[in-house]
């Protein structure tokens, strides 16, 4: 089959399909598109702040001491060093920059290795609470079953963080 006739036939098929498309567009029940768009399409939407779902748990929840619960401390180093829940992993939350990919990968592997079925994050219980927001971040980046401790460290350790 020569190229010219090949292209011609392709053009015929395309034109027939296009015609069918236009007919369908006119008769379709829930209304097709107008042939010429008048108003520009809304291509952009407000940029969403990324994050996933987290559930709060109270500070006296017994699940916090289960083996199957992976604990994360979201507070800065000095607060962590002063006092933290035994076994809690330190992952200080930065308000601007997300957890680096490498660190997140290590976290995922550590959670998998520990056999934990849930992750509980606690922070400083402030407004906003860095524990809650770290929880949202890791939940949004694929970690499942993330909870945060309502009220954070002050509720857990019973003293106001200086």
């Amino acid at each position: 089959m020569k190229w010219c006739s090949l292209l011609a036939e392709a053009a015929v098929v395309a034109a027939t399909a296009a015609a069918a498309a236009l007919v369908f567009n006119t008769v379709r029940p829930n209304g097709g598109l107008p042939l010429i768009a008048r108003t520009p399409y809304q291509v952009l939407v407000p940029c969403p702040e990324p994050g996933g779902a987290v559930q709060p748990i109270p500070a006296d929840d017994p699940a916090l001491s289960y083996d199957r619960t992976f604990l994360i401390d979201a507070r800065p180093a000095e607060e962590f060093n002063r006092q933290h829940l035994p076994g809690a992993v330190h992952l200080p939350y930065d308000w601007l920059d997300p957890v680096p990919d490498g660190d997140l990968q290590q976290l995922v592997e550590a959670i998998a290795a520990s056999g934990a079925t849930r992750v509980a994050v606690y922070g400083d219980g402030g407004r906003p609470d860095n524990g809650e927001h770290l929880g949202r971040e890791i939940s949004g980046r694929g970690i499942k079953n993330v909870f945060f401790v309502s009220g954070g460290a002050p509720e857990l350790f019973g003293v106001a963080t200086p």
Binding site: C47, P48, E49, P50, G51, L96, D97, P98, E137
Partner: peptide
């Protein structure tokens, strides 16, 4: 700044 958005910080 939207978190993780290229250049937001």
């Amino acid at each position: 700044p939207i978190r993780g958005h290229e250049g937001s910080t």
